[in-house]
Amino acid sequence: MAISISDLRAAGTRAHRTTVLKSLNEALARSKPTAFLCHSHKDNDLAEGLQVLLAENGWDLYIDWKDHEMPEKPSRETADKIKKKIGGLDWFLFLATPNSSASRWCPWEIGIADTRKSHDKILIIPTSDSSGTWYGNEYLQLYNQIDTAQGGGLARFPAGQTSGGTYVRNLR
């Protein structure tokens, strides 16, 4: 299974107050799970939809382009800040879409996460289009994933499985 792109777009239109984590101390003070979102900037609407879905489940999701402290154009400073955020937040999420699969930054970011996070703290969010086509490269299937649970809501599933998941709201 995969989360449909249309469901992510619809979630992005729902009114839900989301905030940008500006510091690790701010994130820790909230006592909520925090996550860095790896995604293509061509999928900003999908990223916002995912942010709403996760906020509804008690998570704070960091999206780099919403961070006013990020440089306007990619640079060494951008890379350093991204590395720090990936290492400092609880989880690393990879939004698998056609655009993220073609991105030059996304594979670099998951490579950074792979060296700084335990394997169980890296989660792939597979997506599908209206025809049911699943998006993501083979190496993404090595990681646990977030998907829609059979009873509704989001859950984490072991790599390659669609049952035996843990609801996202219960993860820490």
Rank of each mutant, 00 (worst) to 15 (best):
L93K: 05
P71A: 03
K42H: 13
S101V: 09
G58N: 09
D60S: 11
D80C: 04
V52A: 01
L61F: 03
V20Q: 15
D67Y: 01
S40R: 10
T97E: 09
A102W: 04
P33Y: 07
L89W: 10
H68R: 14
H68P: 10
S40F: 08
L53E: 12
Q51S: 12
L54T: 04
P71F: 05
L37F: 05
K22N: 15
E26I: 04
L21T: 08
D80I: 08
L61H: 01
T34D: 08
P71M: 06
G87L: 07
E72F: 09
A102S: 12
Y62A: 02
W65M: 09
S31K: 15
S31L: 13
C106G: 05
A27C: 12
E77C: 00
Y62W: 11
K81I: 10
V20C: 12
S75F: 00
V20S: 13
I63M: 03
Q51W: 01
L93C: 01
A55H: 07
K83G: 12
E56W: 00
M70P: 00
W105K: 00
E69P: 00
P71G: 03
D67R: 02
E26Y: 01
W91T: 04
S101W: 00
T34A: 04
G49R: 02
D45V: 10
D80L: 13
D64K: 00
H39L: 05
S100T: 08
L28D: 15
L37N: 07
K85S: 14
N57Q: 15
N44I: 13
A29D: 14
L61T: 06
K81E: 11
G88C: 05
E77F: 01
E69K: 06
E77D: 13
K66Q: 13
H68Q: 15
D45T: 10
R30W: 06
H41C: 10
W65V: 11
A55Y: 05
A47V: 06
N99H: 11
I63T: 07
E77H: 06
H68V: 15
L28E: 15
L89V: 10
N57M: 08
D90N: 14
L95D: 12
D60V: 05
A102Y: 04
A96P: 04
K85P: 07
D90T: 11
T34Q: 04
D64V: 00
L21W: 03
R30M: 14
I82L: 11
F36L: 03
E77P: 00
W65Q: 09
S40I: 08
D64S: 13
K42F: 10
A35F: 08
D64T: 03
L61V: 09
I86D: 06
G88P: 06
A29Q: 14
W91A: 02
N44L: 13
K22Q: 15
V20D: 11
D80N: 11
N44S: 14
C106W: 05
L95T: 11
L53Y: 07
D60M: 07
K84T: 13
K66G: 08
W59A: 01
I86V: 12
R30I: 10
